[in-house]
Design a protein around this nucleic acid. Structure first.
Lengths: 194, 194
DNA sequence: AGCTTAGTTGGACGGCGTACAGTTCGCAAG
DNA sequence: CTTGCGAACTGTACGCCGTCCAACTAAGCT
């Protein structure tokens, strides 16, 4: 801090979020502290509070930002179930790209930011095209979200006792896929369609 | 602390774990700190370290302890799928009884303690009787565990935006049940049986 | 030119987990 | 019955954490 009080440091909400993102990638959740963030931006810790309400809000923002990477299938995709499958797989992959973030994600159970809401809307639209409305649709929505985040959390956790993690990741990917197909089959079974 | 150094306080690993359990129930995860725990046991914070290696280990122990409450179906239950269903539902209910614990549970992804291992073995045995072996069985195991813990995490999280949480809990319980049935149906579909 | 206001700093508060050294007791061996 | 030892416990301290407050300064508007 070779700056005297009052001198601007060029801080922005965007710059703060970006730095937070980097810290998260480098040192995991434990590495992301207000002080470390300030250090990286060459600023006093308190300066952050002019751009972010607090740590919780910052985490929420970062979490939601990550969801922007999810590939949303075209709304007019031929088969809505295929679209849902692709959407959930993409979400799963994105989550795997930010392992330390997943537990947080789950603790807040599913970010409530703009991106999260958008994904939810897309899913509801696809479910609608698959024949599910209202309560049924919300039910299916919960199940799919929970399953995906839960599986990501499970996958990104510390390796249980297997020797090398490489085939494990692939194995988990397949497990995820299997379960997802079962769920989708159940969701769109004839008895479910209103 | 009206005790001078060296005087025994009658601490035991069991007493410590029990107090931790109580604190967890009363104040959630945030309420469980080494210092608060020591305060409740009328002891200096460091005294705990004679009975527990550290906070992480303590949490692991408490987490695994909770799993003891899960009702394990009789091994010779008529239908293994029904047994699995009952087992997962009991697990879900137990988890709901300790809301603040669930995120931790997921972060460590499924306790690795004695009780957790036992439950895993029971599930594998039931899956075996349902016709699943080896890789298939492990696959199904992952899916079921992830689904259950994930759903519990989702349910115990802060209410999204619904007005009153009472019907929500019931709703979620039904959602859980629906998804679970779909999963079990998929797992035991003819194509899966070796 | 002067005033307002937003951005930033130094410092502090209360809390956390836990390491280190010292004190004191219970208990087994002599 | 003494002695010695190891385990339990305390006091103190270190280095973190998130966040609030008052002071200060620079930029921008009038």
């Amino acid at each position: 801090m070779d700056r005297r009080p009052g001198q601007r440091a060029g801080l922005t909400r965007e710059r703060v979020l970006a730095a937070a993102h980097e810290l998260l990638g480098a040192g995991g959740v434990d590495g992301l502290t207000m002080r470390a963030l300030a250090r990286r931006l060459e600023v006093a810790p308190n300066a952050l509070y002019s751009h972010v309400p607090g740590k919780t809000a910052l985490l929420d923002a970062v979490i939601d930002e990550v969801l922007a990477q999810v590939e949303v299938p075209a709304m007019d995709v031929a088969d809505p179930v295929t679209g849902l499958h692709a959407l959930m797989c993409s979400t799963y992959d994105v989550l795997l790209g930010h392992p330390d973030l997943v537990p947080l994600y789950l603790a807040r159970n599913g970010a409530r930011g703009a991106n999260a809401r958008h994904l939810g809307d897309v899913m509801l639209a696809l479910l609608d095209r698959a024949g599910l409305r209202e309560a049924r649709a919300r039910e299916a929505l919960s199940v799919l979200i929970v399953y995906t985040i839960g599986f990501a959390a499970f996958t990104t956790g510390p390796p249980i006792d297997v020797p090398d993690p490489e085939p494990r990741a692939e194995q988990m990917r397949e497990n995820f896929d299997s379960g997802l197909r079962w769920l989708l089959a159940g969701i769109t079974a004839p008895s479910m369609r209103a």
